[in-house]
Design a binder for these strands. Sequence first.
DNA 1: GCCACTTGTGTACATTCGTTCACATAACGT
DNA 2: ACGTTATGTGAACGAATGTACACAAGTGGC
Lengths: 214, 214
Amino acid sequence: MTERKRRKPGETRDKLMNAALELVGKGRHFASLGIREVTRQAGVVPTSFYRHFRNMDDLGLQLVDELGLVLRRMMREARANVLQADRLMDESVAIFISHVQQNRSFFVFMAQGMAGESRAVQEGIRSELRFFASELGNDLRRLRLVDHLNDGDLELTCDLVVRTVAFSLTDLIGVSPEDDYQIEQIRKRTTRFLQLIFVGAAHWRTGEQAPLSS
Amino acid sequence: MTERKRRKPGETRDKLMNAALELVGKGRHFASLGIREVTRQAGVVPTSFYRHFRNMDDLGLQLVDELGLVLRRMMREARANVLQADRLMDESVAIFISHVQQNRSFFVFMAQGMAGESRAVQEGIRSELRFFASELGNDLRRLRLVDHLNDGDLELTCDLVVRTVAFSLTDLIGVSPEDDYQIEQIRKRTTRFLQLIFVGAAHWRTGEQAPLSS
DNA sequence: GCCACTTGTGTACATTCGTTCACATAACGT
DNA sequence: ACGTTATGTGAACGAATGTACACAAGTGGC
């Protein structure tokens, strides 16, 4: 075999992964899914599962890989759309929320996996978040927005930003995808969180901070 | 019945809830636990389960209630030990981590439940976090540490603090409870997160923030 | 054209599951 | 003391589960 070998456009492997995502999107937790359940949702006989995955954890790991692609797409779009720095946070949060809406099941899976059953999936997602924070740091450096921060403090700030956005996932998956009002509230709140963090970063000086003294 | 009626010191109800927690602490995800599995772990016959819970979701809800007690104990200890304001964040994070170590399963359950299967459990945990943030706001007001913030901005800050600490749960449950070095790293990092947030709060002015301008 | 291999299917089996029912026993109100 | 209620037990069921094996069908290389 040389390269692509997908014999049919609708591969069973993709059908199974999509089936798992659909179930997760319908409110089920990934850890509670069974092999038979997934194959049933995919319209495939249970035995086919083993042609592509060793067990459900394996499927979860491959879902994490696809999740990585989704996140990279989102990052690319963010970089393309954030032209002027003064709208950086507004735009970024909006793009994030838009992608969550568009790929809801993927992000629900991500939120579940962070405290999930499989240690490997956990580590995979955390690795994606680390990568995201690292790229964010590069971008901020390139835009010359954080010249007063050393590398360690920049990394700290970006990590906190990524965590804050990731946590807002738990808000987003708690409201109906059509509840535009609630989603707008979450968007505004998340943006304000980031503003608060960046105000902190702007006044941050390496070394001991005089705590709580304004 | 008037008040206490526990016929035996080891009630079956507690045995079941503890059994579920033990399984969660052993790495299992709550959403994947079955009734038989829990009763087996508790050393009880499966039928006994229905004497106390209607289903697993019900047990989860009652676990959330107990989790509330754990959190309130932690809050009380924090209030008692944080005497001088200059060590506020250090002490609070240390107390948090100590309680997580002490009640590991409970907090793993909490981390799982945030993106869990049962909407009711999700809402219960979020409600606990809201309460926690609200109490934190009261304390900061009482200590006169945030006089320059209006109520809305104080609430915003406290929410972000609680989220940040809650997110560090996913770090804590990812390392072995005996890995003191890693835990110390998490403690220091979480503390620095909070310092960053409070530096932001100290320089926060209501209304539009000039983003990223130092 | 043929052979090796990947992929999908059907059947099958032992386990486990959730849930029900009838029955025992201990606790409490009165 | 007695009856009512709460709590625990055992056996049993139908259904669902994970996994194995044998077989069909399509594919690529030669």
